[in-house]
Amino acid sequence: MMKTTLTPGQRAGEMSMENVCKTYGADVLTKEVLKDCSFTLEKGRLTVLVGPSGCGKSTLINVLAGYEKPTSGRVSLDGEPVTGPGPDRLVVFQETALFPWMTTFENVSYGPRVRKELSGRELADTTMQLLKMVGLEDFAGKYPSQLSGGMQRRAELVRAMINHPKVMLMDEPFRGLDAMTRSLMQEYYVRLFEEHRGTNLFVTSELEEGIFLADRLVILTNHPCRVKKIMDVDLPRPREFSVMGSPEYLDIKREALELLHEEAMKSFAAGAVNAADFLEAYSKMGEEQARPKAGKDDGEGQRVTRTGSAYENH
């Protein structure tokens, strides 16, 4: 992979959230989304947030990015309180937010250009270098609508990276991509991270993706969203997909699944209509992880492959 001007570790910041609550609405019509959330995004590490769909993951990102103010609690970056959005914390959004009216080149160079940090040749060179890094150099003059989903995500990644953010906030960036593109993007992303070692937060509702990427795994609860457990993921780097067959990976997965299962049970105890479907889906996930464990002795034959494990549950 091309070396860039982004030297590893440069500008990696530490971000923390202390007792953050976020409530929407006022008076009788309130909705408590975040409740007492506390965690730290450690310097140069990749923290993954896993939680069920609709639990408040995007809300968390919005609070960290400074788009929304927490109802109470503290958000800080390197000790300084966060008061609004800024180029030191950049978000890669759940839905693509490349400006459709700008070419890939104009999109990627947008940050340094509006802040007037780089201009002319220098800006063009840096931009092209980053585009090369993600294999988009031939698409510099194309508009987002002319790029595939995976290309759009890569363009968005470098649009953030060109600003040397202290923290990258990724809000389910690979949701909606097809399985093939998705695993390519995961590999791409994990390589970028391992090369640059910036502080990253990656939000996902897919546990397998989460463990594969993570240094630390934060498991969230639903209604309201709290931190249920923070787990360290000490799998070797550089990460390869083959790690997903290792006993360490499977142990983490089993523990995380149990926690998520507990959450699912809790929210359905109240008598939700789709309880049966969800429980079935979750118990399938349980079987899935039990299988390779049983086959640990006979080695290779039962190794969980990427396609075999990550997508069938969905």
Binding site: P85, G86, R89, A97, Y110, G111, R115
Partner: peptide, 11 residues
């Protein structure tokens, strides 16, 4: 999202 992206990028 476009307003947010622009604000984050420092516009």
């Amino acid at each position: 999202a476009y307003f947010r992206a622009a604000a984050s990028l420092g516009a």
